[in-house]
């Protein structure tokens, strides 16, 4: 009986071992035989990260050089975007309906200053992504290209997207591009007024951009040279009340300060 039990135990033990071996072998084979499942999103991120790694290495090499050799090295060794652009282009062309390609479009726009995108790209974006919230992140890189087609597209988004929030993002991108541009100050002001009036609650990355623009705009009007200074009613640090108008009749240097 005892012996029989031992045999039985042995039998089951061996069987279990073989069974486990079979499972692990099968799973290993499965991994080896089917290619790793990657999404377009992962593939795109991998390409962008590979470029970033190359860029970091390049900058590290530049830093290691003596000052007089840096410029020559920069000229000859600066990482080229071409191979990354064509890798991203392949993913775009085979995954036209996957919103992950917006990230690839943004990268291409940035590293080719817009020349890497063509009319059919913009047509495709207009057809499929005009109302997709993900397009919001593509707008700043398009604006930064300073490329006419890219800017025209952002303009089109600001007019034609069915989503108010997306139109607001596009207007804001167009406005920021003109901020500080003396020659186009009228255009800038028109955009700002439109954002303040039509999109008063616009938030971008958590910032109340429309409200901030309104504060700045009002300040520019009310605090311009030649305007009467707005009254300040407050107190010193000990709680003694003070007013700016207490100093009427004196010249006041109003100094916003901190001792940090």
């Amino acid at each position: 009986m005892n012996r029989h039990l031992q045999n039985l135990r042995y039998f089951f033990h061996m069987k279990l071992k073989i069974f486990l071996l079979a499972i692990t072998t099968a799973s290993h084979l499965a991994i080896a035989q089917t290619p790793a499942q990657t999404s377009p999103e992962t593939e795109i991120n991998d390409i962008i990260n590979a470029h970033r790694t190359e860029l970091f290495q390049f900058m590290k090499n530049v830093r290691a050089l003596p000052e007089e050799k840096k410029e020559e090295f920069r000229q000859s060794h600066s990482p080229k975007a071409d191979q990354y652009v064509s890798a991203l282009r392949k993913i775009i062309d085979t995954n036209l309906k996957d919103p992950a390609i917006l990230n690839a479009y943004g990268w291409i726009a940035q590293y080719t200053r817009g020349t890497g995108l063509n009319a059919s790209d913009y047509a495709h974006l207009t057809e499929h992504y005009l109302n997709d919230p993900k397009i919001r992140d593509l707008l700043p890189p398009l604006i930064r290209t300073q490329n006419k087609e890219a800017h025209d597209f952002v303009q089109q988004v600001s007019e034609k997207s069915s989503e108010k929030e997306i139109r607001g993002h596009a207007l804001y991108a167009l406005a920021m591009n003109l901020d500080g541009n003396e020659a186009r100050v009228d255009e800038y002001n028109t955009l700002i007024e439109k954002i303040i009036n039509d999109y008063p609650d616009l938030k971008i990355r958590g910032r109340h951009v429309a409200k901030n623009l309104k504060t700045e705009r009002d300040a520019a009007i009310n605090l311009a040279i030649g305007k009467t200074a707005p009254e300040i009613i407050g107190a010193d640090v000990d709680g003694n009340e003070m007013k700016l108008s207490d100093y009427r009749g004196q010249i006041v240097v109003l100094d916003f300060w901190g001792h940090w």
Binding site: I232, G234, V237, L244, Y247, G249, Q250, I251, V252, V253, L254, D255, F256, W257, G258, H259
Partner: peptide, 9 residues
């Protein structure tokens, strides 16, 4: 008739 008037943060 002159003063500096601070606004401290």
């Amino acid at each position: 008739p002159f003063t500096i008037l601070g606004v401290n943060s």
